[in-house]
């Protein structure tokens, strides 16, 4: 399906995006700093909740510390709030130039985002996690393979998030102004993914509905649960399998929506 030349183009795109982010050192520092401050706020509040009974929704304090700090690190890797260029290109019509290129629009979008995530993993992820390790009692996985599973889970989370944001961006073909769709995405992904609090503190039926019916827990709750070994390795594998399923569903959905969007596109002559 993918020829070697296409792969080479996509790799070059990912590399270019990596270098692009590497240029903005002040912004990277500022982002990591902010994630770290929020790490302290969230870590203290969750620990204070857990202090009453010694645990919170099945997480012991050390697991909560890991959950919060690694979550703050992942926030920039699994990019919820990234700047969106595609909707603006759809609105102005520049997307026509993208469609004329011999590389698929969705593949371009994903490759660029993987490059960005790679840069974030080396910078934005490291800083909050290091601060959390120094300042608090961190839960470290008991098994070596957990790290490998976590790495796979993070990659899948990035892909799920990219696919979701791609769908939001494609809505520009119908709506032109995607701010509304973006807001819905922000609210739903923030509350449903474990970003503000582990979703396991919610009622059981709601947790189940989120895991089965939405891709949101795959964005953050899944990799974090894998890392703190909640429910053991078997449960971790199940979570990763769920993420794979969501990637497949979202990519398929992306293909369908893209095909329809392109058919809708009208090139204004002139």
């Amino acid at each position: 399906m993918l020829s070697t030349s296409t792969v080479r183009v996509l790799a070059a795109l990912a590399g270019a995006e990596f270098r692009r982010y590497a240029t903005y050192r002040q912004a990277t520092f500022a982002g990591a700093f902010t994630n770290t401050v929020f790490g302290f706020v969230r870590c203290y509040t969750l620990l204070s909740v857990a202090a009453v009974t010694g645990q919170m929704a099945g997480y012991d304090p050390a697991q909560l510390v890991t959950f919060v700090w690694v979550g703050q690190g992942l926030l920039a890797v699994v990019n919820y709030w990234g700047q969106q260029e595609l909707p603006e290109r759809v609105r102005t019509g520049q997307v026509v130039a993208d469609l004329l290129r011999p590389v698929d629009l969705m593949a371009t979008f994903v490759a660029a985002d993987v490059g960005r995530a790679g840069h974030a993993m080396l910078t934005r992820f490291v800083v909050p996690v290091a601060v959390g390790l120094l300042a608090f009692d961190f839960y470290l996985p008991a098994h070596a393979w957990t790290y490998a599973l976590f790495a796979v889970s993070v990659l899948l989370a990035v892909l799920v998030c990219t696919a979701c944001r791609y769908l939001v961006a494609l809505s520009a073909f119908w709506l032109l102004d995607v701010r509304g769709a973006q807001m819905v995405w922000l609210v739903a992904s923030g509350a449903g993914s474990g970003l503000y609090f582990p979703i396991t503190v919610l009622p059981d039926w709601l947790v189940l509905a989120l895991w089965v019916g939405t891709p949101f827990p795959s964005l953050m709750q899944a990799p974090l649960d894998v890392l703190v070994e909640r429910g053991g390795t078997g449960h971790g594998l199940l979570l990763v399998a769920g993420q794979v399923a969501w990637v497949l569903v979202l990519v398929a959905l992306g293909r369908v929506v893209q095909a329809r969007a392109v058919r809708r596109l009208v090139v204004q002559g002139g």
Partner: peptide, 28 residues
């Protein structure tokens, strides 16, 4: 510094989060 804008979020939005909780929640 033009590009460090996000630092302000730590103190504006972060400060808002801190203010809404009893200070006994935080430590150190």
């Amino acid at each position: 510094w033009i590009d460090v804008g996000e630092i302000s979020n730590a103190f504006t939005y972060g400060g808002k989060d801190v203010s809404a909780y009893p200070m006994t929640v935080f430590g150190g």
